[in-house]
């Protein structure tokens, strides 16, 4: 804040068409998704169109931002805005996960035990509740739970390591050691990718060998929704880090001016923390 309070100009971008393009993209996505989930054919076309427009928008918009950054229009104040902005964005993500964690805690501590309690013998004389394998009186499907100390533990290790490598890269960036920066980032991206690969294998294993599906009741649904949304975030984080890596290779950042890198790193750490909670509450306990 010190240096920024001396700054009297604040950069206000000139009119831009990207927001409008982005709105069109989301309209296509929304309508397309609504049609698709109802089995209406044209939905898929709209979805594809929406994604295409969205990607076009992202390239265009971030392209503008990067150009502005390279032209040196961002100073202390703008930088601080980006920091606050990213921080609050991550907070909104935290609250999104909170909804699903809330659902997990609720089914585990309230609804599933209640369905097996004495009052509910009136409705379900034969049901006795047990987490994770007997979660609902209507679930006849036989499935097994995912063990914590196999792939998930390895994945925990991978993500924790990636947290370290991204910090290593950051140190490299601050100290002007490019090799360390590139190597650290590259490792982080690779670790992210291996995490995703292992998660893919784990899903495959769960679906085919454990017979665990999204419709397998309270355990299956919280398992897939939480790990699924987390996986999507890892995917996004990996892509972001990859883009940052490309930008590093093009020489975009210096010791002082590298907020894009830091934003990516914050995001990565956030994804990391969510994983730890997942590991504890979904896999382990």
């Amino acid at each position: 804040m010190m240096e920024s309070s001396e700054q009297t100009h604040y950069f206000v971008p000139s009119p831009s068409r990207w927001p409008l393009v982005g709105a069109a993209a989301l309209f296509c996505l929304g309508l397309g998704a609504a049609l698709t989930v109802n089995g209406l054919g044209s939905g898929k076309v709209l979805l594809a169109l929406g994604f295409t427009i969205l990607i076009w928008m992202l390239f265009g918009w971030f392209g503008d931002v990067i150009r502005e950054s390279l032209n040196g229009v961002y100073h202390g104040k703008e930088d601080m805005s980006f920091r606050w902005g990213m921080g609050w964005f991550i907070f909104s993500e935290v609250m999104f996960f909170a909804a699903f964690f809330g659902a997990l805690f609720y089914v585990r501590t309230i609804s599933v035990p209640e369905l097996g309690d004495i009052t509910h013998k009136l409705l379900y004389p034969d049901f006795s509740a047990a987490w994770p394998l007997a979660t609902g009186p209507g679930i006849t499907q036989h499935y097994e739970a995912v063990a914590a100390w196999g792939l998930p533990a390895i994945n925990t290790l991978l993500l924790l390591t990636s947290g370290a490598t991204v910090t290593l890269a950051h140190w490299g960036l601050i100290r002007g050691q490019r090799r360390q920066l590139v190597l650290g980032l590259l490792l982080t991206v690779l670790l992210g990718a291996s995490f995703l690969t292992l998660q893919f294998i784990e899903y495959h294993h769960a679906l085919t060998e454990l017979n665990l599906t999204l419709s397998a009741g309270a355990y299956g649904m919280t398992f897939y929704m939480l790990t699924g949304f987390h996986g999507l975030h890892v995917l996004l984080g990996t892509i972001i880090l990859f883009v940052v890596l490309l930008r590093v290779l093009r020489g975009h950042f210096d010791e002082h001016n590298h907020f894009a890198f830091e934003a990516a790193a914050w995001y990565w750490h956030f994804v990391d923390v969510v994983w730890l909670l997942l590991f504890v509450f979904v896999y382990w306990l």
């Binding site: 659902a103 089914v107 309230i110 609804s111 609902g136 209507g138 999204l214 419709s215 355990y219």
Partner: peptide
């Protein structure tokens, strides 16, 4: 997801709860 993807967040049969 309850509507289209088979989850039971709000369905007692699968351990969910409308009150959730």
């Amino acid at each position: 997801t309850d509507r289209h993807f088979g989850t039971h967040f709000f369905n007692a049969a699968g351990g969910g709860d409308p009150i959730l």
